[in-house]
Amino acid sequence: MRAAEGREAQAPPRDARLAAGLLTLALLAACGLSDWLVANSMLTLPLLVAGLVSAGVTAWGVPRLRQLKLGQVIREEGPQAHHSKAGTPTMGGLLVVPVGVIVGGLVSPADPRLLAVATVTLAFMAVGAVDDWRSLTRRTNTGLTPRGKLLLQAGAALLFLIGAASGGWLGGASPGDVVLPLGWILPLGLLIWPLGLFVFLAESNATNLTDGLDGLAAGCGAVVFTGMGLQLMLRGHEGDPALAAFCTAMAGCWLGFLAHNRNPARLFMGDTGSLAMGAALSAVALLSNSLWPLLVMGGVFLAESLSVIVQVWVFKATKGADGVGRRVLRMAPLHHHLELGGLPEIQVVNRFWITSLLLVLLGLVLLP
């Protein structure tokens, strides 16, 4: 616990605080512009309310989590500089994910799609909480077995897909079709089911892999949720105000969390938060036929996931008799490669945030 207390006693670096403030202002400005220019747009209020409530709840929750001794266990093979983070309270997702879900659901409580998105988000949060809890009680960086974790995620995703299909929501207005740019449509039919399952597993684990530096996943998640909300209002004449507002509520909860998660972090989201983040993005994308925008806007999550896949594949493919293979990166995921290359943690985070902002702009330009 001494390391965590020492980290908390330090004043947050000015550039980390400034970067988080500028990111918040940028997302608020984007939502405000949408509300001003687009009919039926109501993005700013959910963002503000969820952000303020989340910041307050996390401020209240940090000392409680510390009293419960829910301190992060740092994996031995990770960067040595991260060992000072050991003992920092984790499972912060328990504090903020319900805030985003509740605020987003209250925007349009009669819309059953929001209940479906909220349910699968909370289900993935529960899976992450079990994983985090087992890690903490065992004092290791591993909780559930990879197979057990995937099975629980797949089960929650399948229940969502069944509910969405029975409600006629899967794929938005054209069930089974995936809308692409330039007016192209990919008619998948029943193949939308395995694709939907893959999206849930891939996206939730990609956000999980991204959660490795102070403020990285929270900031990128806030940007992508805002981008998804914006594109939902810009597609078509009526847009989709309910799902769009849900997205900005989730963005707000992560911005509020960022007030305590920016460098030096006083709180980590854990798998509790990162799995829920990916599940919410997947659910919204599948219900609104926004898989293409999510792929583009969530490019940072995709790059982080691919960096791990490539690293593992090359290592196994080139492994010699001594059991050692070649490495493409100094360490996977990608953010650790850049960090070990000499780039300070705060700069890695800021560059990934900026990349996410640029990818959101690209996604808006390439709207189906």
Rank of each mutant, 00 (worst) to 15 (best):
P13W: 08
P344A: 08
L306G: 00
M233Q: 07
G163W: 15
V312R: 11
N205G: 02
M42F: 12
G176S: 08
L48K: 13
R330G: 04
V328S: 00
P12F: 07
A110I: 15
L358S: 00
H82A: 01
G104T: 07
E5A: 14
R327I: 00
F352E: 06
L170V: 10
A173D: 13
L68T: 06
Q72M: 12
A154Y: 03
P98H: 08
Q231K: 13
L329H: 01
L33T: 10
L258V: 08
L343Q: 03
L95Q: 01
M228S: 10
G128L: 13
A11Q: 15
T121D: 12
W254P: 02
L45D: 03
L216G: 02
P175A: 12
G93R: 05
T121Q: 13
L340V: 05
L329A: 02
K69S: 14
G105R: 14
L358Y: 02
V62F: 06
V38T: 09
G61P: 02
T24M: 10
T88K: 01
E77Y: 04
G176I: 02
V127A: 07
L195A: 00
A265M: 07
G256W: 14
L22S: 14
S305A: 15
T272K: 05
A118H: 10
L27Q: 02
V296P: 02
T248F: 00
A19T: 00
V107I: 14
V103W: 09
L201W: 12
D177Q: 14
L22F: 14
A317M: 03
V224G: 03
R266T: 10
V103S: 07
E203Q: 15
Q153T: 02
A259F: 12
R66E: 15
A39F: 09
E77L: 03
W313V: 08
V348R: 06
Q311N: 06
A164E: 15
H237P: 13
W60L: 11
L258M: 09
V324A: 06
P187T: 08
A276S: 14
L47K: 00
L27D: 03
S307A: 04
M331K: 03
R66K: 15
L37V: 13
L33N: 09
L37Y: 11
W36Y: 11
C247T: 08
H83I: 10
N263E: 15
L191F: 00
L364K: 01
N289D: 13
F268T: 09
L27P: 01
L255P: 00
I185Y: 04
E5C: 07
L182G: 07
P12M: 12
T272V: 08
L275P: 00
M1K: 14
V120L: 10
A59Y: 01
F160M: 04
L295R: 09
V300Q: 08
Q153R: 11
V328Q: 00
R134I: 07
D240S: 09
P333H: 14
L286S: 02
V308Y: 03
L361T: 07
N205F: 02
Q10E: 12
S41C: 03
R138H: 09
G196M: 01
L115F: 12
S288H: 10
A280G: 08
L25E: 10
A280E: 04
